[in-house]
Computed example of a mutant assay.
Amino acid sequence: MSHSVALSRSRPLVLADLIPGALARDIALVAGGAGLVGALAQIAVHVPGTPVPITGQTLGVLLIGTAYGARRAAAAIALYAVAGILGVPWFAGHHSGYAGASFGYVVGFFAAATLCGFLAERGADRSVLRSIPSMLAGEVLIYGIGMAWLAVAAHLTLSQTIAQGLTPFLLGDAVKAALAAGLLPAAWALAGRRSA
């Protein structure tokens, strides 16, 4: 029994586990993940009628969550959020500090990355068919938390919240989720060929 537990722990749970050097690796991944989300936040398109811009962050959050696993993903997004609040200008549009009505999406990023990491640790990133539900679950968390925060912060009705916090982003986020769902299994396939 203990022999089988030892064997299951020696297998990589997520892509990041393929990188040697546990502590140094984890520190570099957390800092790099926060930086990646901050960089992708600068790809921002402001949509008329909503305080929430279209950004590349969602792609980064889904990839980090799934590639890092729950613990490292949560740490990376927490670092991104806390550093941004403390003054690092890497929220959308080079903003820092409390991000107002759109900050709920940052909170949603934390929940989504953690959930995607948890699911990836259970093999949800090994094939496109298993990755898609994981990415969709992450998107649902981002929208659920982000829209709730937006509604309260901006005093919006349900229809206003949907119009400002969901509808303009659906197509782009579907593309980002599909891209992430395809990239992770491809990375596993590449890693498998290199290690063979």
Rank of each mutant, 00 (worst) to 15 (best):
residue 99 A to Q: 05
residue 124 A to V: 00
residue 106 V to L: 15
residue 97 G to E: 05
residue 120 A to I: 00
residue 182 G to C: 12
residue 108 G to N: 02
residue 162 I to K: 05
residue 90 W to T: 03
residue 72 R to Y: 14
residue 101 A to G: 11
residue 150 L to A: 02
residue 94 H to P: 04
residue 147 M to V: 10
residue 117 G to S: 12
residue 183 L to S: 07
residue 142 I to T: 05
residue 171 L to P: 01
residue 131 S to C: 09
residue 101 A to F: 13
residue 122 R to V: 06
residue 111 A to E: 01
residue 68 Y to P: 01
residue 151 A to Q: 05
residue 181 A to F: 02
residue 131 S to W: 11
residue 153 A to G: 01
residue 67 A to T: 06
residue 161 T to Q: 02
residue 118 F to Y: 15
residue 184 L to V: 04
residue 158 L to P: 00
residue 147 M to K: 08
residue 83 A to D: 00
residue 186 A to N: 03
residue 184 L to R: 03
residue 95 H to G: 14
residue 152 V to W: 13
residue 180 A to V: 03
residue 166 L to P: 02
residue 178 A to V: 00
residue 72 R to G: 08
residue 71 R to T: 03
residue 74 A to Y: 09
residue 163 A to K: 07
residue 141 L to D: 02
residue 78 A to E: 00
residue 78 A to G: 05
residue 180 A to I: 02
residue 112 A to M: 03
residue 99 A to W: 11
residue 83 A to T: 03
residue 104 G to S: 10
residue 117 G to P: 04
residue 175 V to T: 05
residue 171 L to C: 11
residue 141 L to G: 07
residue 87 G to I: 13
residue 114 T to P: 02
residue 165 G to T: 07
residue 189 A to K: 12
residue 99 A to K: 04
residue 154 A to P: 00
residue 108 G to C: 08
residue 184 L to F: 09
residue 109 F to W: 15
residue 120 A to K: 04
residue 117 G to M: 12
residue 165 G to H: 11
residue 154 A to C: 06
residue 105 Y to C: 07
residue 155 H to K: 11
residue 187 A to P: 01
residue 176 K to T: 03
residue 162 I to V: 15
residue 79 L to I: 03
residue 162 I to S: 10
residue 162 I to E: 02
residue 120 A to H: 07
residue 132 I to P: 05
residue 130 R to S: 11
residue 126 R to A: 14
residue 87 G to V: 13
residue 122 R to L: 10
residue 148 A to Q: 00
residue 82 V to G: 14
residue 104 G to W: 06
residue 94 H to A: 15
residue 73 A to L: 11
residue 145 I to S: 07
residue 108 G to S: 07
residue 186 A to S: 09
residue 149 W to D: 03
residue 67 A to D: 02
residue 138 G to Y: 10
residue 71 R to H: 09
residue 116 C to T: 08
residue 92 A to G: 04
residue 153 A to T: 00
residue 176 K to G: 02
residue 142 I to V: 10
residue 91 F to D: 03
residue 71 R to A: 13
residue 119 L to W: 15
residue 160 Q to E: 14
residue 130 R to D: 04
residue 80 Y to C: 09
residue 112 A to R: 03
residue 164 Q to S: 12
residue 93 G to L: 12
residue 83 A to S: 09
residue 69 G to V: 07
residue 154 A to R: 09
residue 97 G to V: 06
residue 133 P to I: 13
residue 112 A to N: 00
residue 158 L to V: 08
residue 138 G to H: 08
residue 154 A to W: 05
residue 119 L to H: 11
residue 135 M to L: 10
residue 166 L to A: 15
residue 177 A to H: 03
residue 138 G to D: 01
residue 134 S to P: 01
residue 70 A to N: 07
residue 144 G to R: 06
residue 186 A to I: 02
residue 83 A to L: 07
residue 171 L to S: 12
residue 151 A to S: 07
residue 104 G to P: 03
residue 114 T to M: 14
residue 91 F to Q: 09
residue 172 G to W: 08
residue 128 V to M: 14
residue 90 W to H: 13
residue 143 Y to G: 10
residue 74 A to C: 08
residue 109 F to S: 12
residue 183 L to M: 14
residue 112 A to W: 05
residue 170 L to S: 11
residue 134 S to G: 14
residue 113 A to G: 04
residue 95 H to M: 14
